[in-house]
Amino acid sequence: MANLKLPYLATAALSGALFGAGLYVSQMVDPLKVLRFLAIPAGGWDPSLAFVMGAALIVMFIAVQLGKRRSAPLFDVAFHEPEYRKVDRRLVGGAALFGIGWGMAGICPGPAISLIAFLPDNLWIFLVAMFAGSLAGSVVIPSGHARRLADAQ
């Protein structure tokens, strides 16, 4: 199993660590900061998070271009492209539900996990609910590569 070897797991650890540091440095861990970014129609809009997304996008775009020159990543036999390809109602409906949740609390899944570092009051409620919601969603969208491929046809 390629995904139990040390370089593979070390890569996952490095990526997770960079991600956590980035969420903190960019202040995306602060739900209030996120909500002030989303509060565009209100006065005193804080556009900072557009810079977070822009910078992340540029770096990842370069990485994707580098990846296209290779047939496989360094520590696995193939790139794992997403199984779903079409824009459908589930994509739009799911994104809309997520948008409501994000707008209510200012916490998307990355910051939800990184906030564990600070153990804020009530965070566990959000995390348990998020996990339950994800489980409930597996009725609509299956987990696992083979099932997803079959579902996407």
Partner: peptide, 8 residues
Amino acid sequence: AGLLTGLG
């Protein structure tokens, strides 16, 4: 909010 985030 968490439920909608996970489900969505």
